[in-house]
Write a protein that binds this DNA or RNA. Structure first.
Lengths: 227, 227
DNA sequence: CCTCGATTTAATCAAACGTTTAATTAATAG
DNA sequence: CTATTAATTAAACGTTTGATTAAATCGAGG
């Protein structure tokens, strides 16, 4: 049996982490079904049985991959939300930035492998299989609920369905830029760079904030021209 | 070798279509790697070798699945775009509706299996594997270019990178509601119904139109409060 | 040094995989 | 009817899969 909290001292290599990193890449590149434990072990430079030694089976390995990153994203979001409402009522743009920045930044953190996780979470978010759904419910629904409450507190004219939709739309936009597919660059003939983090955050914040405000108008007045 | 244009008359069952339908469901539910040709054949009530008889291998089967639906979506979009610009210059809301409605409606067409395709295309859209990328480039880039041009014609103050971003953001929102994951209902305690097509289209149009307009402001003025 | 638990290894399992083959049936044309 | 081609079938190919085993190796404490 593996030791839950490995002492991990001395010269021994950290197989746990190596496996998790390799699994993240594999799941992102080939999907859950397409990723093979053998290939993951090879990539992690570890014996194939080690994967089952630390994570009993493929399902739990997948859960562990999601848990690690979502933990980081959620911690950052929670802290930022607390800080935000501690002093005074912020404006919508600031709130949206707090929600999307951790997501986008982790996806752009290529050196720490965040781009692989980005692709993984994007597919999980829209997937219907039990394992992905489970991961979303467990790791992302709680912070979603808190975020939706925050949006409603800021825009009282939004009813709950509109706030839920607004949040989900905003997150879907953030996720779409989280995974850098290169499509923006291709369609803009290189004018658009999806690895410019600040430009990306700024665009997403502007787009999503205006979108959410429009959802309120959509509910009451229906069809309205601003510009 | 299979006959390209099968005569398909008399009592013989249409195995081609049955295979394609089953493959669409399988790829959507389990991903490319997780879907097995054996299970697809079983689901289609067809001998396993028939899959390779009509579609030579798994890759080509996947391409065929994408090609069928994207053809329908693109035809509808192209026609609507032509009609839209035939008479006079439309407003942004109308243009966005033309772009997202076919996508959303096909995803909501459960009886014809459109919901399965929705899940499939959502994951392909954000996937980095060669096969999915290929499918996107081949089947969705052309109409994307035309749509981006249309947006720029309507909003001359948008530069190309902003228009590209605006289009991609809008599509990502449309795709997120195309696949009905039930998350909206869960987060809103049943108040939000993601299978109400008209309500969904209306929300997406309002959100995305306002978002795109805000991208123009974001470029020039930076941070601006409307409401 | 020896022991003990944590870690790593090679070998193996049955099951499932994508694909191919050769033979058979069904339908059409002459 | 017969000849021909399309559609379908059962069986098997070699490979890879997730998972298990039992033995080997390692590092630290007594």
């Amino acid at each position: 049996m593996p030791q839950a909290q490995a002492v991990q001292q001395g010269r021994q290599k950290d197989s746990r982490k190596a496996i998790l990193d390799a699994a993240e890449r594999a799941f992102a590149d080939f999907g859950f079904g397409g990723a093979s434990i053998r290939a993951i072990a090879r990539d992690a430079d570890v014996n194939q049985a080690m994967v089952h030694y630390y994570y009993q089976n493929k399902d739990q390995l997948f859960s562990a991959v999601v848990a690690r990153r979502s933990g980081e994203i959620n911690t950052r979001r929670e802290r930022a939300l607390d800080r935000l409402f501690a002093s005074e009522v912020p404006d919508l743009e600031t709130l949206i930035e707090v929600l999307v920045r951790p997501t986008i930044e982790i996806g752009h953190d290529t050196e720490r492998g965040g781009d692989a996780y980005a692709r993984l979470v994007v597919s999980s978010n829209n997937s219907a299989d039990a394992l992905s759904q489970q991961a979303i419910i467990e790791h992302y629904d709680p912070i979603a609920r808190r975020s939706i409450d925050a949006i409603m507190r800021l825009l009282p004219e939004l009813d709950k369905p509109a706030a839920v939709r607004g949040y989900l739309f905003a997150i879907s936009v953030a996720l779409s830029v989280m995974a850098k597919t290169g499509r923006a660059a291709r369609l803009s003939e290189g004018l658009c760079d999806d690895s410019d983090t600040e430009e990306t955050v700024s665009s997403v914040v502007a787009f999503a904030s205006a979108g959410i405000r429009a959802l309120a108008d959509n509910k009451t007045g229906r069809k309205r021209v601003i510009g």
